[in-house]
Design a protein around this nucleic acid. Sequence first.
DNA 1: ATGAGTGCAAAGGCTTTGCATTAGG
DNA 2: CCTAATGCAAAGCCTTTGCACTCAT
Lengths: 154, 154
Amino acid sequence: MASHQHSDPVAAADIAHHVATKLGEIGQRFTTGRRDIVSALAAAQRPLSIPEILDQAKGLAQSSAYRNLTVLENAGVVVRVITTDEWARYELSEDLTGHHHHMVCSVCGSVDDVRISDSIEHELDAALEKVAQKAGFKMAHHRLDVVGVCKTCQ
Amino acid sequence: MASHQHSDPVAAADIAHHVATKLGEIGQRFTTGRRDIVSALAAAQRPLSIPEILDQAKGLAQSSAYRNLTVLENAGVVVRVITTDEWARYELSEDLTGHHHHMVCSVCGSVDDVRISDSIEHELDAALEKVAQKAGFKMAHHRLDVVGVCKTCQ
DNA sequence: ATGAGTGCAAAGGCTTTGCATTAGG
DNA sequence: CCTAATGCAAAGCCTTTGCACTCAT
């Protein structure tokens, strides 16, 4: 067993298989449109907005993108990410990418992934669990963002 | 000087004065509508949605609420909070409330304030600053949420 | 064949904006 | 008085939904 470590990300090559399985579990097909979306997200290594996804999944209707992302979210392979941005962003779930956080640029709205040490994650979770319990709140997970100005916007 | 400690919150009684000053700095008046909004936010001790604000600032038009919140945000006394919720929430800036985080209920969307120890905040900032620098990102601050299920929804 | 998936266009819902009116200094 | 602030209603913008068509099983 991997001790207190978070579960490891799925290897890139196995993502498609993993997604197909998860979709199958809720009676959904792994169609071309969904395959394109997952590929775009897997390649990006950061949360993508709908326009960005549509750029890479040429031929996919905007409404289908929204619908498919909802299906993928229900299947547990995609997560809707909230930023200061006007529009929603999506990324593969941490089952596939591993636990990480985001750096959000307050100027251009871009978002990149970052990871911090397990020891700090662990301490943080312990501290949050403590205050959550005190409030009768059942913690599922935490969300941590670095807000600032990206390299390009400085 | 208060060492590494984050700046202290402004006493409740002084909030109005502080807000008036900040508004004055950008050439804005502290009108009745704005006073009502600030009072509602100060009393709530948690981020409020526009509907919640309008409930307490009776007589204020929705459009005025949006406009005033934008003005207050520009004055640096109000912050727009991002949650999983469909609608925006607003709270007084940390200048007034002190540094804190949020517990977001994934069922009903409610949000409550939480605070964790300065030592962990400090460690966290150090770790985030490190990864940010490595990416050429200029960190302004961090944002941390506990996501889970609130007392009421369990 | 037969229902899921897709595209297109229209509808929704929160937020923003235009314009005439009101009020604070 | 004179400009900022407000209310009301219309417009915007991202997102969702309806409906007919297509594709895979």
